[in-house]
């Protein structure tokens, strides 16, 4: 039970990321979560959106370089040490987390976190067995 992340290549110049955000916005694609990783030269924009197919179409038309990556979305218990609980599970099972970022949720009391790992199935199994609730694609659309 993974969710789809849109990863976009952007040059590190003023307006580089803005172009992408604007293109998605004008096509009524809603951004649910976003993170940027960059070097001096370029950046990678990682997005969770409400409509992946529409995002794909817009970015293709725009000539943007992007990829769709399966990532794991988890509901972090809304209590102190909630995220630590998730990361401890990963560390205990030697699952290397490539990157993670948080997710804003308007309603509800959970915080959402996106995890990028090598083996999604393995991570999902461990998380589920550890009693962590996962986020589904449907829930993201409904957010």
């Amino acid at each position: 039970m993974t969710i789809k992340q849109v990863s976009v290549f952007a040059e590190n110049r003023s307006g580089g990321i803005l172009d992408v955000i604007q293109a998605l916005g004008s096509a009524q694609v809603d951004i649910r979560a976003l993170s940027v990783a960059d070097t001096q030269g370029f950046g990678i924009l990682r997005l969770i959106v409400d409509n992946v197919d529409r995002a794909k179409a817009v970015l293709t038309e725009n000539g943007t370089i992007f990829s769709i990556t399966d990532v794991v979305g988890v509901k972090v218990p809304d209590c102190p040490g909630g995220l630590a609980q998730v990361l401890t599970l990963m560390a205990d099972h030697e699952i290397n987390v490539e990157y993670l970022y948080a997710f804003v949720s308007v309603s509800g009391s959970s915080a959402y976190v996106v995890l990028r790992v090598q083996d999604n199935d393995e991570a999902i199994r461990i998380l589920t067995e550890g009693g962590i609730e996962l986020v589904t694609e449907d829930e993201i659309q409904a957010l």
């Binding site: 990863s7 990783a37 990678i44 370089i65 990829s67 990157y99 990028r116």
Partner: peptide, 15 residues
Amino acid sequence: EMSPDFFTDKLSELT
């Protein structure tokens, strides 16, 4: 120019 084959979402891999 970046190409789809070269691109990945992992910064460490790209660098």
